[in-house]
Deep mutational scan, measured.
Amino acid sequence: MTYKLILNGKTLKGETTTEAVDAATAEKIFKQYANDNGVDGEWTYDDATKTFTVTE
């Protein structure tokens, strides 16, 4: 399945997608991606749209 991440960081904003077997796997990938890019904030997930959002 395709999952989407919306980044609302102070210095980085944008979107990315990943292919993952489930939401938990996608979350791990996205949290590593956000960490690698210096984004740390409040996480939400919308199962209907398979979208994670992180807001600093």
Rank of each mutant, 00 (worst) to 15 (best):
M1T: 15
M1A: 12
M1Y: 15
M1D: 14
M1L: 15
M1F: 14
M1W: 14
T2G: 05
T2E: 07
T2A: 07
T2Q: 11
Y3N: 00
Y3I: 01
Y3R: 00
Y3K: 00
Y3L: 01
K4V: 11
K4I: 11
K4S: 07
L5H: 00
L5K: 00
L5E: 00
L5M: 05
L5R: 00
I6S: 04
I6A: 04
I6E: 04
I6G: 02
I6Y: 09
I6M: 06
L7S: 03
L7W: 15
L7Y: 12
L7A: 04
L7D: 01
L7Q: 03
L7T: 05
L7N: 02
N8M: 12
N8H: 10
N8D: 09
N8R: 12
N8W: 15
N8V: 12
N8Q: 09
N8G: 04
N8S: 10
G9K: 04
G9M: 12
G9F: 14
G9T: 14
K10H: 09
K10D: 07
K10N: 12
K10S: 10
K10P: 09
K10Y: 13
K10I: 12
T11P: 04
T11Y: 13
T11G: 10
L12H: 13
L12V: 12
L12I: 14
L12P: 04
L12F: 15
K13T: 13
K13E: 07
K13N: 09
K13S: 10
K13A: 08
K13D: 05
K13P: 05
G14S: 14
G14D: 09
G14P: 04
G14T: 14
G14L: 14
G14W: 15
G14E: 08
E15H: 12
E15S: 06
E15N: 07
E15Y: 12
E15D: 06
E15P: 04
E15W: 14
E15L: 10
E15K: 07
T16H: 14
T16N: 05
T16M: 15
T16E: 06
T16A: 13
T16Q: 10
T16K: 11
T17K: 08
T17A: 08
T17Y: 15
T17H: 10
T17S: 12
T17G: 04
T17I: 08
T17F: 14
T17E: 14
T17N: 07
T18F: 06
T18Q: 06
T18N: 04
T18S: 06
T18Y: 08
T18V: 15
E19W: 13
E19P: 06
E19V: 15
E19F: 15
E19N: 13
E19Q: 15
E19I: 11
E19G: 06
A20N: 04
A20W: 02
A20F: 03
V21K: 14
V21T: 12
V21L: 11
V21F: 13
V21Q: 10
V21W: 11
V21M: 12
D22N: 08
D22E: 04
D22R: 03
D22A: 04
D22V: 03
D22S: 07
D22G: 04
A23G: 05
A23Q: 10
A23P: 10
A23F: 09
A23R: 15
A23M: 13
A23Y: 14
A23H: 11
A24L: 13
A24F: 10
A24I: 09
A24P: 09
T25L: 07
T25A: 14
T25D: 11
T25K: 06
T25W: 07
T25S: 13
T25G: 08
T25P: 02
A26D: 00
A26M: 02
A26E: 00
A26G: 02
A26V: 03
A26H: 00
A26R: 00
A26P: 01
E27K: 12
E27V: 06
E27R: 10
K28N: 09
K28G: 08
K28M: 12
K28L: 13
K28Y: 11
K28S: 09
I29K: 08
I29M: 08
I29P: 01
F30K: 00
F30S: 01
F30N: 00
F30A: 01
F30Y: 02
K31L: 08
K31Q: 08
K31D: 02
K31V: 07
K31I: 08
Q32K: 14
Q32G: 06
Q32I: 12
Q32W: 06
Q32F: 06
Q32N: 07
Q32D: 07
Q32M: 12
Q32L: 10
Q32E: 09
Q32R: 12
Y33T: 03
Y33S: 02
Y33V: 05
Y33W: 13
A34N: 03
A34I: 06
A34G: 04
A34E: 01
N35W: 15
N35D: 09
N35T: 13
N35P: 02
N35M: 13
N35F: 15
N35L: 14
N35V: 14
N35H: 15
D36M: 13
D36P: 02
D36A: 13
D36E: 11
D36I: 11
D36Q: 14
N37V: 15
N37I: 14
N37H: 15
N37E: 07
N37L: 15
N37F: 14
N37A: 14
N37Q: 14
N37D: 03
N37G: 05
G38M: 07
G38A: 07
G38I: 04
V39Y: 08
V39W: 13
V39E: 03
V39L: 12
V39G: 03
V39H: 04
V39M: 11
V39N: 03
V39F: 11
D40K: 12
D40M: 14
D40F: 15
D40A: 12
D40I: 13
D40G: 09
D40W: 14
D40R: 14
G41I: 02
G41V: 02
G41M: 03
G41F: 03
G41H: 02
G41A: 02
E42D: 13
E42Q: 11
E42L: 13
E42K: 10
E42Y: 13
E42N: 11
E42S: 10
W43R: 00
W43D: 00
W43A: 01
T44F: 11
T44S: 15
T44P: 00
Y45I: 02
Y45K: 01
Y45D: 00
Y45F: 07
D46P: 00
D46V: 06
D46G: 02
D46R: 04
D47I: 11
D47F: 09
D47K: 09
A48M: 13
A48Y: 11
T49W: 05
T49D: 05
T49H: 07
T49M: 07
K50Y: 12
K50A: 06
K50T: 04
K50S: 06
K50D: 03
K50N: 08
T51G: 02
T51W: 02
T51R: 03
T51D: 01
T51F: 03
T51P: 00
T51I: 06
T51Q: 04
F52D: 00
F52S: 00
F52M: 02
F52E: 00
F52W: 07
F52V: 01
F52P: 00
F52Y: 06
T53F: 09
T53L: 06
T53H: 06
T53K: 06
T53W: 11
T53N: 05
T53V: 08
T53Q: 06
V54K: 01
V54E: 01
V54D: 01
V54S: 02
T55G: 05
T55H: 07
T55Q: 06
T55V: 08
T55R: 06
T55L: 06
E56A: 09
E56D: 12
E56Q: 11
E56L: 06
E56W: 14
E56H: 07
E56F: 09
